[in-house]
Design a protein around this nucleic acid. Structure first.
Lengths: 239, 239
DNA sequence: AACCAAAGGTGTACGTCGTACACCTCCTGT
DNA sequence: ACAGGAGGTGTACGACGTACACCTTTGGTT
């Protein structure tokens, strides 16, 4: 073959970029070193010249996603600054459905990961939260700083599965209501009482923002109250 | 061999019980069908007479853990009832370190899983939260209803790894502070200013209860304010 | 007493995975 | 002209989950 049609040599960035788009297409479970190599027109072992192993690959892919995050404008309240960073992370995670599980399973903290955590932390501190309070608020936010929270009710939603007929569905719903009346109650409420829509799932965006604002409101209340660990004006008026 | 020393026949419960204790010992990653079979003195394929496949095994193991949860006393406030259920889940998950990841990765909702979700939901409803509010609060709680929340800063903590000497550690810490000043600030606050302890990790129990009570307090405030979706007296005074 | 269908357990085999290791083949700087 | 390294190859190993055909023991029916 002539030299000019020879493939440009790989490098780490090209490997990571292809891994990300491939995972976008086929999902994280189907992404194997072999499959990725094939997509790059290369033998599997060639990848190991650019990533240490599959864990390293996954770390790198997460870094690529985090690189998509954006900075908040300079002139907003501290809550909105934090809010921006978190929602920006959420948008990135939604563009890459696999990223959620990848972030959850990664234990190694790459510099990129630490940088995002540092930025969110900085948002609380800049707003006047004490270092101690900020620490606990970061824990309270939890995975929400990555733009997701556990999707409690999300349907496995296999679109290929044959849908049950209406009669069967109604029977299943009745049985569900008998066994788990409370779940049925809130599921029904979510659809404004339309029972036929109960299986349709929740408005994840609304739920996410609801919880996020709940926490930011609580944060602002504690900050104003001068929260300190142990005794505080605002917290734990229950129990 | 004589008949009386022949192994008692397996059944699903014995398989699940052994899987749970084995996972407690060697971790969920090292738990393979082959290893589990060996532990039961049986050939790998024998397990498939009692569980459909590995996913089914994992589902069953999660059910075993959930069976350890306890009911709250009857005469407590609704917040304490929810609190009891959640902390009871937390205790169970702490007894089985692998359960966290197993619960996170399971997508199928077994009856046991649904029962727990129904019970927590019922706690909010019994306290007088509307079905709609309860729905959103469940989402806000997220994985906390399973007794864990993402451990943001938890150290990979490989005890076998050779500890760096004090000098190297101090240099790493200085570099850390230069790159991620905000993280360093809150990490230092968590140890009362003792820099040597910064790597030691957080008091996860405190963090968990802090976030839990934050949410329960917010819930009670919204309930009292008669929260409804859209416009409400209490929520979203920021932004 | 004779029988037969399950239920429980075995053995072999296949395809897939991550990756260790030895090797080759260019390109680049001296 | 040459050495060395970076990039790519080929083969191979030991896991893994599990399909499939087979054997053995047992309990109920005739």
């Amino acid at each position: 073959m002539s030299p000019q049609e020879r493939r440009a040599p790989l490098n780490r960035d090209r490997v990571l970029a292809e891994a990300v788009t491939l995972a976008d297409e086929i999902g994280i479970d189907a992404l194997s070193m072999r499959r990725l190599a094939q997509e790059l027109g290369v033998v599997p072992m060639a990848l190991y010249k650019h990533v240490a192993n599959k864990d390293d690959l996954l770390d790198g892919m997460v870094d690529v996603v985090i690189a998509e995050l954006t900075e908040p404008p300079a002139d907003v309240s501290w809550q909105d600054a934090v809010r921006h960073r978190v929602l920006s992370a959420r948008a990135a995670v939604q563009r890459h459905a696999w990223a959620r599980r990848a972030i959850e399973s990664r234990t190694r903290r790459t510099p990129t990961v630490l940088a995002h955590m540092d930025a969110v932390t900085g948002g609380f501190l800049a707003g006047g939260c004490s270092a101690d309070l900020t620490h606990h608020l970061m824990h309270a936010l939890g995975n929400r700083i990555w733009g997701f929270s556990p999707e409690l009710f999300d349907a496995p939603a296999d679109p290929d599965a044959p849908g049950p007929d209406a009669e069967t569905a109604a029977a299943a719903m009745a049985e569900m209501g008998r066994r788990y009346p409370h779940i049925l109650a809130i599921a029904t409420a979510a659809t404004g009482g339309d029972l036929g829509q109960v299986g349709a799932g929740c408005d994840e965006d609304f739920e996410f923002v609801f919880a996020l604002d709940l926490l930011l409101d609580a944060a602002e209340r504690l900050r104003r109250g001068g929260w300190t660990r142990g005794g505080s004006p605002a917290a734990s008026e229950n129990r």
